[in-house]
Design a protein around this nucleic acid. Structure first.
Lengths: 211, 211
DNA sequence: TCTATATACTCCATTTCGGAGTATGGCATT
DNA sequence: AATGCCATACTCCGAAATGGAGTATATAGA
C-alpha cells in the first residue's frame, strides 16, 4: 500500500529527532492526539513501513535484557517529507463531536440530560485547555522542547487554544441559556434561540464557488 | 455486537421522521457530516441492525420496477434513544486536521507550501460556512425543515458556525502573518510568534482535576 | 524484598472507510 | 422516438484503523 497521512505524521516526528516508538506514542498521546488522533497500535506499526521503504532506519539498543528500537529518518525520508509538504491536503478539517449529536436529539430526551451533556463537554475539553496552557507557558519561558520552531508552532498553538476556548465557551453559554428554560415561556425560549442564530456577524466564503 | 454511536446517530434521525437510506445518506452528507462524519456504506448498513433489534421497521415500496426501503422508528426505538440520551458521551470532541500536521512540519518544507496549505484550509471550510449561513437563513425565515426544534438546533448552529468562523479566521490571520516573513528579520518573526502565543487571555479548566 | 509503575512493545478480532459497481427512473435534447 | 445523462437506490469488498488484551523487563519506593 501507499503511504497514508498517518505515515507522514510519524515521518515528520522523526524529522524532529530520532524516537523509540514508546516515547513517540507517549508524545503523540499528549499533543498530536488533539488534532490527529491515532490508535497506539498504528503508531507502532507505521515506522516499520517507513523502514521497508528506506525512509527511516531502525537501531536496536538494549537496557539490560530489554531491547528497544530507535528509529531515525534517512535523507530519502526527508526528501519524501518535503515532497509531501508541497502537496495539497487530502482531507478538510474534520470534527467528530458526539456531544453535538446529543444536542441534536435533545428534544427526545430530558432537559437535564442536555445539561449533563454540556457539563461533560467542559470536563472533556479540560485536558486540551490544560495542555494548551502548559505549551503556552513553555514557549513564553523559552523552554519548549522544540523552541527553535516557535515561529511555526505559534500558528498551531493559536488554532488549538482557540479551538479549546471555543468549545468551553460554547458549552458554558449554552448551559447558561438552558438553565433559564424552566422559568421561561415558549415564546421567550423561541426568541432567545432566534437571537442566538441571528447574533453572529456572518462570515462568508472568501471566494465564490467556481462553476 | 452492541449498538455504536453511529447507530444512535441513525436512530435519532429516524425519530425525526421516516427516511429511505438514500435520502438519509444525502441529508447526512449535507449536515451531520460536519460534526459526525461516517462513510456512506455505514449509513446504509446501520438501519438493518436497528431493524434486527426491533428499534426500527423497514417498509418496501416500489417506484415502477425499482424498490426502495423506508425505515421508521418503533416505540422500542424511541425508548432506546431516550435511554442513550441520559448516558454520558463515550468520546470527547475530536478534531482531525491534516492541515495542522502540515503546519507542524512546515519547517521542513517551503514557506509557499505553508501559504498554499492555509489557502486550501479556507477553501475547504467554505462548504461549512455556506451550509451554516444557509441554515441560519432558514431558521430566521421560519422555513427550516425542523423549525419545531429551533430551540435545540440554535445551540448546534451556534457551535458549528463558530467553528467554521474560527477555522476561516485562523487561516486568514496566519496567512497574513506569514506573508510578512520575507521582509522581516528573524527577531521580528520571533517577536511576532511570541506575541501570538501571549495574546490570548488564557481560559482555564473550570474545575480543578480531581486526584 | 516486595510491589507497583514505567518501559517497550506484539497481536488480533472487530469496525470502518472509501471507492467501485449495478440497475432503474425521469427529464431534456436532438 | 431514440439517446444521453443525471438522480435515485442501493450492494460489495479489499484495505486500513481501532481498541483493547497480552507479554516481558526495568526501576523506584515502601
Amino acid at each position: 500500500m501507499t503511504l497514508t497521512t498517518t505515515s507522514y505524521a510519524i515521518l515528520g516526528q522523526l524529522a524532529l529527532q530520532p524516537w523509540t516508538m514508546y516515547d513517540l506514542a507517549a508524545q503523540m498521546r499528549r499533543n498530536v492526539t488533539f488534532f490527529f488522533p491515532r490508535a497506539e497500535s498504528q503508531v507502532y506499526a507505521e515506522p516499520k513501513r517507513l523502514v521497508e521503504r528506506g525512509l527511516a532506519t531502525a537501531d536496536t539498543e538494549a537496557t539490560g535484557k530489554r531491547a528497544r528500537t530507535v528509529y531515525s529518518i534517512t535523507e530519502a525520508g526527508r526528501a519524501e517529507l518535503a515532497r509531501w509538504l508541497a502537496e495539497p491536503a487530502t482531507k478538510p478539517p474534520q470534527l467528530e463531536f458526539e456531544g453535538l449529536l446529543r444536542v441534536m436529539f435533545a428534544p427526545y430526551g430530558r432537559d437535564e440530560d442536555l445539561a449533563r451533556t454540556l457539563d461533560q463537554v467542559r470536563d472533556d475539553i479540560g485536558g486540551m485547555l490544560d495542555t494548551a496552557n502548559r505549551i503556552r507557558d513553555e514557549y513564553l519561558e523559552g523552554r519548549a522542547p522544540f523552541q527553535r520552531h516557535v515561529v511555526h508552532r505559534a500558528i498551531m498553538h493559536d488554532f488549538l487554544s482557540s479551538f479549546a476556548d471555543l468549545v468551553d465557551e460554547w458549552a458554558e453559554r449554552s448551559a447558561a441559556r438552558i438553565a433559564k428554560w424552566p422559568e421561561q415561556s415558549d415564546e421567550e425560549r423561541l426568541a432567545d434561540a432566534l437571537e442566538v442564530v441571528r447574533r453572529k456577524p456572518r462570515r462568508t466564503r472568501r471566494r465564490p464557488k467556481q462553476a
